[in-house]
């Protein structure tokens, strides 16, 4: 078998299986988005672009994108910085590092929908431990879930708690597989730890960083369980994100057709913006690599 033919043997099985599973749902969603499928009217009639015209004027949908951007970008950046920092901390010469490595991984292993309930009890303003700690530090109790800014912060905190381990793992795995020679060379040059990090570690970690950030952005954008449980989008609409809004329209309201239009729009916007983000990140982070 020639190399040229055999390359398909590698890629095609996965590709075919994936397309087989995903093709129908995807096409179906697009088709549904042109229908008036609703709680009172199941089925695939044809109403043209009505749903899309409606969503253009749906300020709640567009506002939710802004909040999503803030929440996703904010929490992913925090996760990346914290994850990188933690990976560096337990990379070398630390006592009991294997213990800490395992410990740092654990939050990622928990079921978001259940942990969100636990976090809601923690943030409970009179029965939870967070305000207890605040009181211990001699501050007034804070409205963690009922004030717009704090509610957003609370949700970001939960996201950071849950998903920093993901970054940590990716980056630690990356760090652990780095070759030693560049570090030796830097040491011979007399570079300090900060210079070594900027000149050697960070550039070598750039490809894995970009991948990790992109995949986290994708996942973070779908945030639903924690919003639903912790604030259910409130106070007002202060923590309502796109996917939560789509959830309300699609499964609460059961406006299936409209939700499909919202989702497809979401999919297109996300695919475009992620591509742009990936390109920008690559340019910013890989510049030295290419030079």
């Amino acid at each position: 078998m020639s190399a040229d033919r055999s390359k398909f043997v590698f890629v095609l099985p996965g590709l075919i299986v994936l397309v087989a599973i995903i093709l129908f749902p995807l096409l179906f969603t697009i088709r549904v988005s042109f229908s008036d499928w609703d709680v009172a009217r199941p089925g695939l009639d044809w109403i043209g672009a009505t749903n899309y015209l409606r969503l253009v004027h749906d300020t709640r949908f567009w506002e939710s994108f802004g909040r999503l951007a803030l929440m996703a970008v904010g929490s992913v950046l925090l996760q990346y910085m914290l994850g990188f920092g933690l990976a560096l901390l337990v990379w070398r010469e630390v006592r009991a590092r294997r213990f800490f490595r395992v410990l740092f991984l654990i939050p990622m292993m928990t079921t978001p929908v259940i942990m969100a309930v636990i976090w809601r009890t923690m943030f409970h303003e009179s029965l939870g431990p967070v305000n207890d700690l605040v009181r211990l530090l001699h501050f007034a109790p804070l409205p963690w879930l009922s004030q717009a800014g704090l509610a957003m912060m609370s949700i970001i905190t939960v996201e950071v708690w849950q998903w920093t381990p993901f970054m940590f793992l990716m980056l630690l795995a990356g760090l652990l597989s780095l070759p030693r020679e560049p570090f030796l060379a830097a040491a011979i040059d007399g570079a300090g730890p900060i210079r070594t990090f900027l000149r050697v570690t960070f550039p070598m970690m750039a490809p894995i960083s970009i991948g990790a950030i992109i995949i986290r952005l994708i996942e973070a954008s779908k945030i639903l369980d924690s919003v639903y449980v912790i604030t259910s989008g409130g106070p007002g609409t202060a923590t309502e994100t796109s996917s939560y809004y789509i959830f309300i329209r699609g499964l609460r309201d059961f406006q299936v057709g409209y939700a499909a239009a919202l989702s497809f729009t979401y999919l297109v916007i996300m695919a475009i913006s992620l591509t742009i983000i990936a390109k920008v990140l690559a340019r910013a982070m890989l510049v030295r690599d290419r030079a």
Binding site: F24, I218, K222, V256, S263, L267, M270
Partner: peptide, 13 residues
């Protein structure tokens, strides 16, 4: 990109 789609919509398909 298969992971971009919010699961909510995929439920019915």
């Amino acid at each position: 990109s298969q992971r971009i789609m919010p699961p909510v919509v995929l439920a019915i398909p």
